[in-house]
């Protein structure tokens, strides 16, 4: 079934699919960042796929993953899991990912769409035009990772207060923070 799904998706998207994979029945396709709105619109309007519901949208920071993959090579020890990672060749792979979870209400099938976001170009086109449901999740990704969404109507911080100086879910931000305090001045 997942093979059908993959075939359908690649039929629909054609060369836009950069990579695809399947794990425990969850199908993931990777698409170029700049075309994401177009891809999601196509997936939504394709009559066979009909991915008409945006479940969620969030970011992932892969910094530690790459560091971990790079280390065993130098030390030449501990293959195991890290060896399965594709070895980064040439320039380092983009640091961030934004993942869109789609659902088709008619067929109850799900799809993960992934875009990669390099550190020097932290922006992904907004999909709020397709689904209003993306409003807060995009604000949250901006808040937590610092990825901007051009086209978003109101891109502010969502969870942390406005003056918060960092993006907490990045892997280089410590769990216990850097001692930020919120100061409110009244009158």
């Amino acid at each position: 079934m997942t093979m059908d799904l993959l075939k359908g998706v690649s039929n629909c998207l054609g060369p836009l699919v950069v990579a695809s994979g399947e794990f425990r029945g969850d199908v993931t396709v990777e698409v170029p960042k700049a075309r994401i709105a177009e891809v999601l619109a196509r997936l939504r309007d394709d009559p066979n796929l009909a991915y008409d519901f945006l479940v969620d949208l969030f970011g992932v920071d892969n910094l530690d993953l790459y560091e971990k993959a790079a280390k065993p090579k130098k030390k030449t020890e501990g293959e195991g899991d890290a060896a399965e990672e594709p070895k980064p060749a040439g320039p380092p792979p983009p640091r961030f990912e934004v993942i869109y979870l789609l659902l088709s209400l008619s067929t109850n099938r799900r799809l993960h769409v992934k875009v990669r976001v390099p550190e020097d170009d932290l922006s992904v086109p907004s999909v709020t035009g397709l689904w209003k449901a993306a409003t807060w999740p995009e604000r949250e990704v901006y808040d937590m990772f610092g990825i901007r969404f051009p086209g978003h109507p109101d891109l502010r911080r969502l969870l942390m207060w406005d003056e918060f100086p960092a993006h907490p879910l990045r892997k280089d931000y410590p769990l216990e923070g850097r001692g930020e305090e919120r100061i409110l001045r009244y009158e």
């Binding site: 794990f23 425990r24 969850d26 993931t28 479940v55 899991d81 399965e84 990672e85 993942i99 979870l101 799900r110 993960h112």
Partner: peptide, 9 residues
């Protein structure tokens, strides 16, 4: 767990 990503609802 093995390397991978899942979503379960």
């Amino acid at each position: 767990p093995p390397v991978g990503e899942v979503y379960h609802a």
